[in-house]
Design a protein around this nucleic acid. Structure first.
Lengths: 122, 122
DNA sequence: CCACATATATCACTTGACGATATATAAAAT
DNA sequence: ATTTTATATATCGTCAAGTGATATATGTGG
């Protein structure tokens, strides 16, 4: 039970990385590497560095986050925080995300039950 | 509230189309056009023809579905049904999808609450 | 001092959803 | 009867985005 390779599992949520990053930033300033770990801990989803940094640059270019280099512990890190546009975006995206996935669940769960109970042909 | 353009909403599901198609096929033989409508009705997600047919061909090439041309009402349609491999795939994918979705929800919902209650800087 | 985790970045590659387009048939409208 | 519209499948060029590989630099622990 539950044997998807990493690639398949990742593909499942290809379009949700933005939402997750914005969600992590909702409770305060974070830098890239910490965002990565937080998403990983909270969602089980691994965002690779090669995906994360371009993603953050896109969010910045879109004005959804604001970045500043700061060294709080002697080390330079690029801190990201939501802009007000980012907050609005998170609000509408997260709400849609929630609604859309709930509907998909209504499609997927009965199917899962179906296929779990009746094995079949071919 | 809830103002995502079509593209953003679609991007949200890049990767989940396979699962939805397999889910629809879980309760029996369907042809492409009917799969499209079922997914649309059940999930609110529109799979465009230019996505659906190549997707079905991929599933067939991977041995997850089996296709046969049949004319039940005078009209030729290409009927798809799950293979046993397709059933196994659906079972593991759907289970994973469900689990991952629940965890992601745990990340997104608190963030949504956060951003809904406290407006902020920049 | 050296290995490893931390931290950010870029780029070529690949996958896949899409719009546009083509084709053909059944049904519905005029 | 003819035109239009919905049904039904298919292909192709384009584009966006996640990934692996790779590079670079700094802090930390052995």
């Amino acid at each position: 039970m539950s044997g998807l390779d990493d690639k398949s599992r990742r593909d499942l949520f290809r379009g949700s990385l933005d939402v997750m990053v914005l969600a992590v930033l909702a409770d305060g300033k974070q830098y890239g590497y910490s965002i990565q770990k937080r998403v990983r801990n909270a969602s089980g989803q691994t965002i690779k560095a090669g995906s994360l940094y371009p993603l953050l640059h896109r969010l910045e270019a879109d004005g959804l986050v604001k970045a500043t280099w700061e060294s709080d512990t002697g080390r330079d890190r690029k801190w990201y925080e939501l802009t007000s546009a980012g907050q609005r975006q998170l609000k509408s995206t997260a709400a849609d995300w929630q609604a859309a996935f709930a509907r998909m669940q209504a499609l997927v769960l009965p199917a899962l039950r179906q296929v779990t109970n009746h094995p079949a042909s071919s």
